[in-house]
């Protein structure tokens, strides 16, 4: 475990060089939220009106949380890096190091986005408060629950994206698959909560990764209940296990057939 903490720490230290870039990147987040905030304002004639169980404040906070999770993730960069590692043969140099590659990707990427996550969370909260003038009803338990599920959501996303990236062992370039994944998460998981979708679609979404990577933590933030927390946490543990298993199987199969020419 110590080695993965060190990988996390090393990536964190490396990424401290880019704090300014994170602030610049936040501008995009601000624009996105500003547009959505105005959209909800237009949709809700009365801020206390409930649409599919959410009032205007809850909808805005929901998007603030899902967008923090999505924009912090840096999924495109991770997928591109793994694709390049596989195609360029760089992945081979990880093989003779005594660590697990999947663990390396997970702890390394978590380290590389930790500062960004922290900055986006603080600025996102400030922005939400400026837009709405209040926070949802929170207590120490709900804050902890959101933090835990938020970190687990990010870890699951990293594993799923690693799995997509490792597809480069089979096909030449897995980036288009990431593009598709990104769009599905954006449309079905970021802007609207699951309750907004047609009834027949909701069970599918509940069992899909959307429930654990975006809906869960955001729902807990806007409407905390121990029941929801337990079901989100359980689903996240199952998804973590599945994600890790898929990545390990794909990686093992890939490195067996690895061709690294030249030198």
């Amino acid at each position: 475990m110590r080695k993965y903490l060190f990988i996390f720490k090393s990536e964190l230290m490396s990424n401290l060089q880019y704090v300014f870039n994170i602030f610049v990147g936040f501008f995009g987040y601000f624009i996105m939220l500003f547009i959505l905030f105005n959209l909800w304002k237009y949709m809700y004639s009365d801020p206390n009106e409930l649409i599919n169980g959410y009032n205007m404040s809850q909808m805005t906070w929901y998007v603030i949380i899902t967008e923090i999770l999505w924009m912090t993730l840096g999924g495109r960069k991770l997928c591109r890096k793994i694709c390049n590692d596989v195609r360029g043969g760089n992945i081979a140099y990880n093989l003779n190091k005594p660590y697990n590659y999947i663990g390396y990707c997970l702890s390394g990427h978590l380290g590389s986005i930790a500062i960004k996550g922290l900055i986006y969370t603080v600025l996102g909260m400030i922005m939400g408060f400026i837009f709405l003038g209040n926070f949802p009803d929170l207590n120490i338990f709900s804050i902890l629950a959101v933090l835990i599920t938020g970190i687990l959501a990010t870890a699951i996303s990293i594993l799923l994206i690693t799995f997509i990236g490792l597809f480069s062992f089979i096909i030449e370039d897995a980036n288009p698959f990431y593009w598709l994944y990104g769009k599905v998460i954006l449309i079905l998981g970021t802007v609207f909560p699951i309750e907004y979708f047609p009834t027949f679609l909701q069970p599918f979404l509940t069992f899909s990764p959307i429930y654990v990577v975006s809906y869960g933590p955001a729902k807990l933030f806007v409407d905390f209940s121990f029941g929801t927390f337990a079901s989100v946490l359980l689903a996240q543990i199952i998804y973590l296990f599945i994600g890790y298993l898929l990545c390990t199987l794909m990686y093992r199969k890939g490195v067996k057939n690895l061709n690294v020419n030249g030198g």
């Binding site: 110590r2 080695k3 903490l5 060190f6 990988i7 090393s10 230290m13 490396s14 060089q17 760089n90 140099y93 190091k97 005594p98 660590y99």
Partner: peptide, 22 residues
């Protein structure tokens, strides 16, 4: 092929490798 972390100092890199090898 570089195996060192370029943003870190050699000292931090050595500490990292020490941890990797337990």
């Amino acid at each position: 092929k570089e195996q060192l972390w370029t943003h870190l100092t050699p000292y931090d890199n050595f500490k990292f490798f020490g941890a990797i090898y337990d």
